[in-house]
Each structure stands twice: as structure tokens, then as C-alpha cells.
Amino acid sequence: MYLKRLKFLRMNAGLKQTEIADLLGIQQTVYSRCERGFQTIPLHFLIKLADFYNTSTDYILNRTNEIKMYPESIFE
């Protein structure tokens, strides 16, 4: 499930939930609920986190194991 990837990315970056919540402009408790699966993460937050971690939404959503962003040429 993608929630494990959100936690992995955050911990791998050495960040706390409060720091990610600040980035998203929400309370830490709201982000915690998203990360633990008690609340659905809004799409615009998912996109913002993918950009922040320099990865794809597909990686976060467990649709690929490739953590790196897609090369620009894939969209040409």
C-alpha cells in the first residue's frame, strides 16, 4: 500500500511528520492520519509530496518500484 511508501520517503529524508505537515499546510495529526491510512490523502497533497521527494506519484502509489522520476523524454 502507498502509505508505507509515504512513511519510507519521509523517514529516508530524515523528516518528522510535523515538517511534512508544515509543507502541506496542515496539522501534524491530519498528516499522521493520512500516513496511517485513517484518512485519504488528497490528490494535490500527493502531487506536492511527489515533487518534494523528487519521485513519481506512481512510486508513492506502489504502481512502480522505480523511485526516480520519469525521464522527460517519456512525455515527448
Rank of each mutant, 00 (worst) to 15 (best):
L15N: 02
E35F: 06
I60V: 08
I60Y: 04
L6A: 00
T29E: 13
D51M: 09
E72K: 12
L15S: 00
D22N: 13
D22C: 07
L24V: 03
T64K: 02
A13V: 02
L6S: 00
L49W: 01
R33M: 11
D58M: 05
R5V: 07
D58W: 05
G37A: 07
L49C: 06
D51K: 13
I74F: 15
L43I: 08
L9N: 11
T18C: 07
T18G: 00
K16P: 00
L9A: 08
T29C: 09
G37T: 06
T40D: 10
Y2F: 14
K7S: 14
A21G: 10
R10T: 11
F45T: 00
L23I: 12
Y70E: 14
C34I: 01
Y70D: 14
M11Q: 14
D58S: 13
N12M: 00
T57K: 06
Q27M: 08
M11L: 13
A13D: 04
N12S: 07
L24N: 01
M11G: 00
T18K: 11
L9Y: 08
P42N: 06
T57P: 12
I41N: 05
K48R: 15
K7V: 15
S56K: 01
E19S: 04
I47W: 06
N54V: 07
R5Q: 05
L15Y: 00
F38G: 15
L23W: 09
A13M: 03
K68F: 07
T40P: 03
S73W: 08
V30K: 15
K48M: 13
R10K: 13
K4F: 07
V30Q: 15
K16A: 07
D58G: 08
E76Y: 11
K7L: 12
S73K: 12
P42G: 05
M69N: 12
L9P: 14
P42V: 00
I26K: 03
E35W: 04
R33F: 04
F8R: 02
I74H: 14
Q39I: 02
S32E: 06
L23G: 09
Y53G: 04
N54Q: 15
A13L: 03
A13E: 03
Y2D: 01
R33I: 00
L3D: 01
Y70H: 12
I74R: 15
K16R: 11
M11N: 11
G37D: 08
Q39E: 10
K7E: 15
I26G: 05
E72L: 09
Y70T: 11
Y53M: 02
L6Q: 00
Q28A: 13
G14F: 05
F52A: 03
R33W: 06
K48D: 14
R63L: 15
L24Y: 01
L6F: 12
E76M: 07
S73N: 11
R5A: 03
N62H: 11
L9V: 11
R33Q: 14
L61C: 10
N54R: 15
M69L: 08
